[in-house]
Design a protein around this nucleic acid. Sequence first.
DNA 1: GTGCCCATGTAAACCGTTACATGATTCC
DNA 2: GGAATCATGTAACGGTTTACATGGGCAC
Lengths: 194, 194
Amino acid sequence: MAQEEVPSQDPALPATAYAVLGLLSFGQEVTGYDLRKWAMNMRYFYWSPAQSQIYLELRRLLQHGLVEVHLEEQKSRPDKRLYRITDAGLKVFRDWLDHAPVGPPLLKHSVALRLFFGHQTNHGRLREVLTEYRDWAVEQTNGLTLLRTDLDQALPYPALVATWGSAYFAAEITAIDTVLADLDRMETGQREQD
Amino acid sequence: MAQEEVPSQDPALPATAYAVLGLLSFGQEVTGYDLRKWAMNMRYFYWSPAQSQIYLELRRLLQHGLVEVHLEEQKSRPDKRLYRITDAGLKVFRDWLDHAPVGPPLLKHSVALRLFFGHQTNHGRLREVLTEYRDWAVEQTNGLTLLRTDLDQALPYPALVATWGSAYFAAEITAIDTVLADLDRMETGQREQD
DNA sequence: GTGCCCATGTAAACCGTTACATGATTCC
DNA sequence: GGAATCATGTAACGGTTTACATGGGCAC
C-alpha cells in the first residue's frame, strides 16, 4: 500500500466539510464556484464560509478520497474543476447525518448585543439600529419566498428549511416591533412612575 | 513621549473585545472569571467565546488603555485581577455602539443544515434530531424566564433582550412542530398522490 | 468603457477552541 | 472522599477571513 488514496476511517472533518459533502450529495457535478453560489442561498440559516475556504475543503476532501475531480479545459480562464462525490464520501456523509450529536445553533446576534448594552447609547441611535435590522429581516423573508417557489416539489427538504426560515424572520420582525414599543413605554414612563 | 500607554485612535478591535467592554460598562469591577459567567448568561443570543479568549481580550484592552487593573492578593490561589473600564474605554465603546454598521446575525444552525440534507437520512433519525433540538429549545426558554425575574426593573435593556430571546425560542419550537407535521404528511402522501 | 461575472488559487494574520497546569476551598 | 468552584494562565492547532493575483467575456 504505497501512497494510494486510502479513505481514512474517521477523518474528523470540520463542519464546513460536511456542508460541502452534503451539497455534493445531491448528485450533481459542480465546481467550487458553483458551490459558493449554492452556499449563499443557505446563508439564511447557515453562515457561508469565505470562498477560499470552500476551495480548501474541496482539496481536503479530495485527499481523503471523498470526492473526485475531472478537469474541463477552458481557454483563457482557469480550467474548470468539476467535483463529484464518491461512494466513500456518501458513506461518510450519511454516517455524519445519522450519528453526529445534536449541537445547539451557533448564534452571534450583534443587534441583540447592542440592545443589551442600551444603557450606553441614545434611544435615537438604538432605534435606527433596530429599524435597520427589521428592514433587513423583511428583505430576507422576501428572498426566502422567492427561493421557495423554485424549490417546492423538486427539493422538499430544502423547502421545509425555507419555510422554517420564513417563520424565523417573521418572529424576528414582530419581536423587533415589540422591543420598539417597549422602548416607547420606557421613555414616556420615566416621568410618570406610579 | 516614551513608551507610555497611548490610547490608539482606531484600535479596530474584534467583536469579542466590544462585548467585554460592554460588560465592564455596567460599572462594576470584575475579574475575568466573573466576566465568563456573565457571558454565559448571554449565550442565548451571543455565543460565548472560550475562557482563555476572554483573558486574552482583557490583556489586549489593558494594552490599549481601555481598562485598568488592580490586584487583590489571595493566598494559595492566583491573585484576583480586578478590571475596571477607563474613560477612554467608555468612549471607545460608546463610539462603537453609536457608529458601528448594523451587521446581520451570524448563524450556523446545524440542525437546520441536517434537515436541509434530509434526502440522505432516514426519517426516524431526522425526527430524533429535531425532537432533541426541540427539547433543548424548551430548556432555553425555561432558563430565560428564570433569568428575566432577576433582571426586570434593575436591568431594563437586558430584560428586553431576554423577552426577545423567549419569543425566538418559542418560534423555534412551533417551527419544529410544523416541520414534524410536514414530515408526517410527506411520508403518508407518498403512496396516495392524486 | 466601466464594471460585473466567471474560476481558481496563494499568503498572512488572527480569532477561537481544546487541552493542560495549578491548588486550596467548599459542598454533598 | 470526590467533585465542583475559584482564578489565572500557556501552548498547540486549525478554521476562517481578508487581501491579493489573473484575465477574458459580456452587459449596460
